[in-house]
């Protein structure tokens, strides 16, 4: 008896922990958004009827898309150079990407407060060289949030893509060259398509990460650039509107899961190595 169910006994505690303390509470949160007074979808109607909340949702999508697009380009080009670097330099470049990744979100966002502030380093520098006469207001703009988010996610993208690029067999690249393709042609027609599944994995990580972020938009966007995460906190802890906060939570969960499922399907379809 004990032997037959050994697998269940061993996997049980961890499985139960996830089901009881993650699945149930999250399901309960989502459940409270339905069956309210005024119709089953009332909280959602209220959310989308509010111009302010629609703006927040749209702004969050914009910031996440911009962060994802920039991180993809920067991360891919950098990962390409890293993957082609000789051994010692390569490990050094990988370490230099791991270090910021392991340093917390708060620390990395705080760094940008020092750089972009009114009396920050960038303003002092620009005034110093005479490029501008008055310090610019760079904080609490969509741009400042995007810069800090890109900073947050580029290391992740580099590390994901270095792994992917290193798995591309050398034979394929050599075959392309010996058949007369220029290095740029090989890059575009061989390496890029083979990296697509990895690019999609990276893009999903960055998009869902930025869509649900809290610390970075809070520090660099503040009240003026409210996003879904900061709005959810404000609804729950400032206005004590728990149904409103739960509605935002539900929208986040639905968008995250939709993006993950849709993109993993796309990744499977676009994988040129799959037959």
């Amino acid at each position: 008896m004990l032997k037959r169910f050994a697998g269940w006994w061993l996997a049980g505690p961890a499985t139960l922990a996830v089901l009881v303390f993650l699945m149930l509470p999250v399901a309960a949160t989502i459940a409270t958004t339905f069956g309210e007074d005024g119709g089953i979808f009332a909280p959602y109607i209220a959310f989308f009827n509010s111009g302010f909340r629609r703006t927040v949702l749209w702004r969050t999508i914009e910031i996440s898309l911009a962060t994802t697009a920039i991180s993809l380009v920067v991360g891919f080009l950098t990962a390409y150079v890293v993957s082609k670097s000789p051994g010692k330099l390569k490990s050094l470049l990988i370490i230099a990407a791991v270090f910021p990744l392991l340093t917390g979100v708060v620390v990395r966002s705080f760094a940008w407060l020092i750089i972009l502030g009114k009396n920050g380093i960038l303003n002092n520098f620009l005034v110093g060289i005479g490029a501008i006469s008055e310090p610019l207001s760079m904080l609490y703009t969509q741009g400042s949030v995007i810069v800090a988010m890109v900073y947050l996610f580029v290391p992740l993208m580099i590390l994901t893509l270095v792994g992917v690029l290193e798995n591309i067999p050398d034979d394929v690249v050599q075959a392309s060259a010996s058949l007369g393709a220029t290095p740029a042609g090989t890059f575009r027609q061989v390496i890029l398509p083979l990296a697509v599944p990895g690019l999609i994995v990276g893009a999903v990580l960055v998009f869902t990460g930025s869509f649900t972020a809290y610390a970075t938009p809070q520090l660099l966007g503040g009240e003026r650039q409210m996003v879904m995460g900061t709005l959810m906190y404000q609804r729950a802890m400032v206005s004590f509107d728990w149904v409103g906060a739960s509605t935002i939570a539900a929208i986040m969960v639905v968008i995250t899961i939709t993006v993950v499922l849709a993109m993993s399907r796309v990744a499977r379809r676009l994988n040129p190595m799959a037959t």
Binding site: G7, W8, A11, A14, T15, V18, L19, F21, L22, M23, L24, P25, V26, A28, T29, T32, T208, F211, T212, Y214, G229, M232, Y233, A236, W242, A245, S246, A249, M252, V253, T256, I257, V260
Partner: peptide
């Protein structure tokens, strides 16, 4: 073991951390 069991341990990744925190506050 059923194949869904390994999926259980992917679930925490699919749920945004901020949603997990809020749900634990409410329910637990």
């Amino acid at each position: 073991l059923p194949s869904w069991l390994s999926t259980v341990f992917v679930l925490p990744i699919l749920v945004p951390e901020i949603v997990l925190g809020f749900s634990l506050l409410k329910s637990v």
